[in-house]
Amino acid sequence: MELRHLRYFQVLAQTLNFTRAAELLHIAQPPLSRQIQQLEDELGVLLLERGRPLKLTDAGRFFHEHSTALLEQLAKVCDNTKRIGLGEKTWLGIGFAPSTLYGVLPELIRRLRSGEPLELELGLSEMTTLQQVQALKAGRIDIGFGRIRIDDPAIIQTVLTEDRLVAALPAGHPLLAGPISLRQLAKEPFVLYPGNPRPSYADHVIALFESYGVSIHVAQWTNELQTAIGLVGAGIGVTLVPASVQLLHRDDIGFTPLLEDNATSPIILSRRVGDVTPGLNHCLKIIDELLPR
């Protein structure tokens, strides 16, 4: 299947007339008919009812709707690629761990999308810190927001803030009367995230408990913060989350503070060594303005 098949079908689906579609496409009718037949052969279904008048089949209506959206997205990608290549627009790829969305990141994204003073095309990718480092080195993103310190000579990491950790527990749990200690919490079954890839925030949590001479029993591994929160609400276990996650309001879970002062998790900015592109510099300037003095 080639792009011309999609474009030809889009015009034909709009006109429902082979002669008119061929005129709009500036081709003869027989080649258009052959291209549509090739498309149907490849898909293995009929897209058109070839009667009078010409009609789209159910499969044809579905294919028209989704191929139209695909072509519109492709046109946007091509336009932005051209504008970036001509220097009219700047591309900035951002990787982020889900839990960092409860800090300065949402406001940063709003400011970057304002188009002042630099018009940016943002690419947002959810990924762990380890995946961010790999994506930075491959050039797929320009900046990352994660929670794990990774030693790599090609990457500069900066701690933006240290988030206090709190315990997330099922509604009605007796420990919600807190504050509580890590030793108390270690007696509870744990929902831990992310399971992969490692090292990750999960290793940070395990190391925190081990620094107090206790270990935790992991009742359930999951890869997403939201999934972990949902499983806590279902009574599977408890978990540790950054305090900023308390912005979530759910009836089936509660949060309680920890007694230990070092029970924190950093938000870490990662970027390539020597990267001084305008988009990145603009992003760093906004971050500096947003962070508390």
Rank of each mutant, 00 (worst) to 15 (best):
W91P: 00
E107M: 07
R164M: 12
V11H: 05
E72R: 15
R250T: 07
D41Y: 08
G279Q: 07
A154D: 13
L3C: 01
L56N: 02
R20G: 00
E88F: 06
A207K: 09
L105C: 02
V45Q: 13
F255C: 05
T222R: 04
S67M: 06
H26F: 04
G230F: 08
L291V: 13
A154H: 11
A243W: 07
Q29H: 04
L247C: 06
L122M: 05
F9K: 00
Q184V: 04
F18W: 13
G146E: 10
S244Y: 03
S244G: 09
L247A: 13
K285C: 04
I143S: 03
N196H: 13
P257D: 11
D261Y: 01
A22R: 00
I156K: 05
V218S: 10
R50C: 07
I216M: 07
D79R: 14
E23K: 11
L24K: 15
M127L: 11
E65P: 00
V276I: 07
I150E: 08
V214M: 06
D203I: 02
L108W: 05
A138K: 12
L290Y: 08
H204D: 11
G44N: 10
F145T: 07
H66K: 12
V276F: 10
V166F: 05
A22E: 00
E40F: 01
K137N: 12
L6P: 06
T81D: 12
E121S: 13
Q37D: 09
L248R: 14
F145A: 08
V77K: 04
R111S: 06
Q220V: 13
K137Y: 09
A167V: 03
L105G: 00
L176M: 12
Q37K: 12
Q226N: 15
D142M: 00
L56G: 01
H204T: 10
T128Y: 08
G279W: 00
V133I: 15
A243R: 13
L108Q: 05
D58N: 08
L43Y: 04
V77F: 09
L112T: 02
Q246R: 15
H66F: 15
H217Y: 10
L136K: 02
L280E: 05
F63G: 01
R250E: 14
V104I: 15
N262M: 07
R271V: 00
M127E: 10
E121I: 09
E23A: 11
A243M: 09
Q226K: 13
L185D: 02
H173T: 11
L70I: 02
E40D: 06
L12F: 04
N281H: 02
P179R: 11
F96D: 03
N80S: 11
L70C: 03
R4L: 06
I206N: 04
R7E: 06
I253P: 08
T239A: 14
R20Q: 12
F255W: 10
V159Q: 12
D142V: 07
L284T: 03
Q73V: 01
D251T: 11
D41W: 05
R147V: 14
P53N: 10
Y212P: 09
P31D: 08
L231M: 13
D58V: 04
I287S: 07
A28K: 14
E119C: 09
